[in-house]
């Protein structure tokens, strides 16, 4: 009797274990990869910030406490990079959002040829970022690019020079390239949100006597607001980390005028092979970004509570 009952008692347990482990089996390969290639390096990177790690110096590797951060607090280049990051991120996000919103509104109404127009205006998004950077660098180059000549002809510039080599104007180069490249992202996201607004709301509003402006202010904007908020938040973090265009177009120059924190980290690691110092800067950037995100979340909470 006991022998006969035994397998019955064991099987459900085995089945239970099999059932419970199934989702883990599906997700394990992805998880293992993410942990070894992203989380372990992240932890290592944080530890590097407190160690002396220079690739070319075999004697390095010792624990040096807060030395990197002390050096960082006196590093003028870092503070300039911080200011440049604000400028780069603020201008890029604002312009991408503004032109993206206008484009989304333009594409929201059906018209003949909308499909093709949409594919064409979204095309820059498909251009690899390094190529977008090179492309714009060439356009700004007076030797082969038309932009300096046009700006000179329009009287915007005194002479057809390359703005990328002008310390006062250089930052505009990567920003313009970034805006060109990033408009589709905002436009696509906002277009999706726009098309999710129920059409009969607009019809009801026009029957109630609302004009186009009132309809935009009282229906479109409130519906878009959550999408706008989340997209801008995420995009801000993303763009402040986005060094490709700057590395390609100016490499931080002239005279560090276009160096942002992300490209500064890359330069420290790639050019000077000072991994310890690069990691210390990265850690500061991470903390700043976390603080920014927390601030936004808190701000949202207080606004919601007030409402």
């Amino acid at each position: 009797m006991t022998i006969a009952a035994h397998p019955q008692a064991v099987r459900p347990l085995k089945k239970r274990i099999a059932d419970a482990s199934e989702p883990y089996l599906y997700s394990a390969p992805a998880l293992i990869l993410i942990i070894t290639v992203m989380l372990v390096p992240l932890a290592l990177g944080i530890s590097y910030a407190f160690r002396d790690i220079q690739l070319l110096n075999p004697l390095s590797g010792g624990f040096i406490g807060l030395d990197h951060f002390r050096a960082l607090s006196e590093d003028q280049a870092f503070f300039r990079a911080l200011r440049n990051t604000l400028w780069w991120t603020g201008a890029s996000v604002f312009l991408q959002f503004l032109f993206g919103l206008i484009l989304a509104l333009l594409l929201d109404k059906p018209f003949a040829g909308r499909g093709i127009a949409q594919a064409l205006v979204f095309l820059p998004w498909a251009v690899p970022s390094f190529l977008a950077g090179l492309n714009w660098a060439w356009l700004f180059n007076p030797v082969i690019g038309p932009l300096p000549h046009w700006m000179y002809a329009l009287g915007i510039m005194d002479a057809p020079n390359n703005i990328l080599s002008d310390p006062h104007l250089a930052m505009w180069g990567p920003i313009v390239a970034n805006v060109w490249w990033g408009i589709p992202f905002f436009a696509i996201t906002l277009l999706a949100a726009l098309q999710a607004i129920p059409r009969d709301l607009y019809e009801a509003a026009s029957i109630d006597g609302a004009g186009p402006v009132q309809r935009f202010l009282s229906i479109t904007l409130p519906f878009l607001a959550p999408t706008i908020a989340i997209t801008i938040l995420l995009r801000t973090v993303w763009i402040s980390n986005f060094a490709d265009l700057i590395v390609v177009m100016t490499n931080g120059g002239p005279a560090d005028r276009t160096q942002i924190v992300a490209s500064y980290i890359f330069t420290q690691a790639f050019k000077r092979l000072d991994f310890g110092y690069a990691s210390a800067i990265a850690l500061v950037l991470l903390v700043l970004l976390l603080a920014y995100s927390m601030l936004i979340v808190l701000l949202r909470q207080t606004l919601l509570n007030k409402g």
Partner: peptide, 13 residues
Amino acid sequence: MFPLVMLVAPIFK
């Protein structure tokens, strides 16, 4: 969310 550029050095190592 975190800057991938943080990982450049550790991944190389």
